[in-house]
Design a protein around this nucleic acid. Structure first.
Length: 522
RNA sequence: GGGCCGUUAACUCAGAAGGUAGAGUAUCUGCCUUUUAAGCAGAGAGUCGCCGGUUCGAAUCCAGCACGGCCCA
């Protein structure tokens, strides 16, 4: 007992003070951490740097694997070329005078072999002090073991970073969902498929940027902090600007700013960034989430259907080995164009089996909604009620990609009215795997109509609808200058990544999902 | 906000009916120069989420709270 106490003392405040100025032991010191601390102190006493830098690492494991693909043992044996790689030690199999380790760098893993007669008595003694979780640099030629595994025969090695906390169990990995999200760094270290998910996320986003760039869309950045939270129906987060002494809202959507850019003359714009909505957290919702919104002048929502089919097909092939179909949570989903299209009302009757009287009158809808257990607020009209019915009886059944178009005017305050059907708008939503994936419409560019819509929203707000739009006078003014006819669309990136990576929860595709703070001391 | 479930060693998990906690991995010691969930022998490691209550006695039963998960609104 007193042995490790003394050693920790030395490590934290005694002999090693110079190199550990300010270092304090963690509160949850367990026996393994104590032993690591002691081992680290011992290494420092032997003048082994625990956190050196400046070492060159010319080779990547991925390259070594690629270059050696198909090379026979004899072929490798004959090649004396030494390679130098660095990575985290993930496993150790140690014998009396030799040791195997697996080393992992950012995208690949390779076995390395340390032998006493290669690195000498002192070198091997130091090698024995390497722990799982340490980051090391090794150099030497490649060979194949008896079991034909490509392995680097270590001629020299350097400790680059000492690990002080044991890694999770090698076989089961880190399973505890809470720990995986709170300590994503450990999750990423241990669970290769998690790293792969986030690599795919990056690829999806960069492919999307390229897709829009190729079509002459300009990427822009509009404000995250809004004086009026507009562009969607959602509750915003409120914040305060001290110097200006004014309340601001984190944006719920960039829409109204992007359309101001159409007015300004940028005819194709997109923004791919975060939105914030002050609502519940679930497998589908994170308070901050990523959206791409894009606007194209002289296009209609029907044009965007084709563009969306093209984009989703491309993204799917990009992360899914060139295939245009994928499996999501057991369902095979075919993203090949063209996708099914139903008007909103058609879908209610054809897919949701909603009776005609519910579609034709508010009274009919109220009665039917009640039979489904759907409540109704005073400020809600027929259109709003039908969307609630839709969410319950149609949306979950839209597993294969489906466009639902011609939405009720009441729930679409920024969309152009459908010609000849003024209670409906030129808008579609895309559903895949029972979830809304995109929302698009031909943009309302008549300032008189837009003002009326805002006024209806304000009436709804006054009647108690907290999510209703506020009046945005500057946006009306912009429309008065003239916004070209245009169509715009928003796609939820997180849900898209969930779909393309077969992830059941939005938290699986967000690196650091929102969590309540942990109360326990670290 | 409501319902159900979970929280035990650093990790993955056992602990019917109340009697002061176990395994595997990891760690430490010894043996071991082609292993790969290496092996063999031994050892250490726990505020059983927190706080109350019932009881001679609580990881276990009860109430509350915290955090998390799933479902619902």
């Amino acid at each position: 007992m007193s042995l490790w106490n003394n050693s920790i003392d030395e490590f934290c405040g005694g002999a090693s003070r110079a190199s550990f100025e300010g270092f304090r032991p963690m509160e949850d010191l367990n026996s393994v951490v104590r032993e690591r601390l002691e081992k680290a102190a011992e290494l420092e006493r032997q003048n082994v740097a625990l956190y050196p830098n400046g070492y060159q690492v010319p080779d990547r494991i991925k390259q070594l694997l690629a270059n050696s693909l198909g090379k026979k043992a004899e072929e490798l044996e004959a090649d004396e070329t030494a390679y130098t790689i660095a990575g985290r030690v993930l496993s150790v199999r140690s014998f009396g005078k030799s040791t195997f380790m697996h080393l992992c760098d950012s995208d690949s893993k390779i076995q390395v072999y340390l032998q006493k007669n290669q690195i000498g008595e002192d070198g091997y003694a130091l090698a024995k002090r390497i722990d799982i979780g340490d980051i090391i640099r090794v150099g030497g030629p490649l060979f194949r073991t008896k079991t034909d595994e490509l392995t680097l025969l270590v001629k020299d090695f350097t400790l680059l970073t000492k690990n002080l906390r044991p890694l999770p169990e090698k076989f089961h990995g880190l399973k505890d969902i809470e720990l995986r999200y709170r300590q994503r760094y450990v999750d990423l270290m241990i669970n290769e498929q998690v790293r792969e998910t986030f690599r795919k996320r990056a690829r999806i986003i960069s492919t999307m940027r390229r897709f829009f760039a190729e079509r002459d869309f300009l990427e822009v950045e509009t404000p995250m902090m809004h004086a009026i939270a507009g562009g969607a129906t959602a509750k915003p987060f409120k914040t305060h600007h001290n110097a200006l002494d004014m309340d601001l809202y984190l944006r719920i959507a960039p829409e109204l700013y992007l359309k101001r850019l159409l007015v300004g003359g940028f005819e194709r714009v997109f923004e791919l960034n975060r939105n914030f909505r002050n609502e519940g957290v679930s497998t589908q919702h994170n308070p901050e989430f990523t959206m791409v919104e894009f606007y194209q002048a002289h296009a209609t929502y029907e044009d965007l259907m084709g563009l969306t089919e093209e984009l989703f097909g491309l993204l799917c092939r990009e992360v899914n080995e060139g295939k245009t179909s994928l499996e999501y949570q057991g369902d095979v989903i075919d993203l090949s164009a063209p996708w099914a299209r139903y008007t909103f009302l058609e879908s209610l009757s054809a897919i949701g089996n909603v009776p005609r009287e519910a579609l034709e009158s508010l009274e009919g809808a109220v009665g039917y909604a009640r039979s489904l257990g759907i409540g109704m607020e005073r400020f809600e009209g027929h259109g709003k009620l039908l969307t609630k019915i839709f969410d319950l009886v149609v949306e979950p059944r839209l597993v294969q990609p489906t466009f639902i178009y011609q939405y009720p005017l009441e729930v679409s305050p920024l969309s152009r009215k459908t010609e000849g059907a003024p209670e409906f708008v030129d808008r579609f939503e895309l559903f895949i795997a029972g979830r809304e994936m995109a929302n698009a419409f031909s943009e309302l560019n008549d300032p008189r109509d837009q003002r009326e819509r805002f006024e209806r929203q304000i009436a709804a707000f006054q009647a108690g609808d907290e999510e209703a739009h506020q009046m945005d006078e500057d946006y009306i003014r912009a429309l008065e200058y003239g916004m070209p006819p245009a169509a715009g669309e928003g796609i939820g990136i997180d849900r898209l990544v969930m779909l393309l990576t077969d992830s059941p929860s939005i938290r699986d595709v967000i690196l650091f999902p929102h969590m309540r703070p942990e109360k326990k001391g670290l």
